[in-house]
Amino acid sequence: MSTDTAIIETRELGRDFKVRDGVRRRTLTAVDDLSVCVGAGEAVGYIGANGAGKSTTIKMLCGILVPTRGSVTTCGLRPVADRRELARQVGVVFGQRTQLWWDLPVRESFTILAAIHGLGRTAETARTEELVDRLELAEFLGTPVRQLSLGQRMRAEVAAALLHSPRLVILDEPTIGLDVLSKQRLREFLVAERTVHGTTLLLTTHDMGDVERLCDRILLVDRGRLVWDGTLAGLSRTVGAQRVLVVDLAASTPDLVDVPSTQHLGSEGGGLRQRLAFDPDTTTAAKVLAAVSERVEVLDLAVEEPDVEDVVRRVYAARR
């Protein structure tokens, strides 16, 4: 990846905090030695436990915090020095704090934000209409923000952060507290936004559904340090997480306990559906399927990826 197309680039980035511990002061390292390059159009999941340094990193990317060590460029700009220029190119959704005016109707918040970002009349109308349409905001556009449900408010927040068509969108826990349907809508919108406008996405989340559906790359941090940069599948492989082949069979079959390189996890419906775990390093789904098909006709199948939270737990456990 060349530097020209890099949207986020950090080199040995680090950030310490001085904390008061009674009378003594001690230094707490929130982020350490973080070197990452994110290219235009990527969708990156930034995951890790609470206090792993995610928010600190985001604040450094936006110019809210000054790094203690190393360097960072966002959209080719220095976040602290060029904060105002950067603000035009980045949109941030903080799950916990609002960018909307709580006592105003949603529509008015958009008008003010359009003025803040200096959008022309035509651009403002077009973009607002697009977002209202795709995020389904029309029904509560005239409602004061304080009266919105959490799901509605979150969709309005996302629209507010994306109104100025930023190149990079950072989402900090965007789906926290949302019901299943709202989560689904929001994810679909983000996928579409990325496809249509080529927007780069960086999201921190505890919801692994977000990571699985939205991200093609994950960064895993543990105690301020980057411990994985790559695909989710790759991460699963490194910690020896297994994939599971689920087969629906044409006839009731005794448990398939002796298929090579697999482990039988269980059967349902008197053996009509069986679950076989396998290690992707020693065999493939195709080989397992072939082995099963030799014995009984397979009607349908599904491959289950390892549970992300389980993977993260394994990574953390291995490092302690």
Partner: peptide, 14 residues
């Protein structure tokens, strides 16, 4: 305390 100041950082004005 509420972190609302951070929102000001995301806007292109002083």
């Amino acid at each position: 305390r509420a972190g609302t100041l951070d929102v000001f950082y995301l806007r292109p004005q002083p």
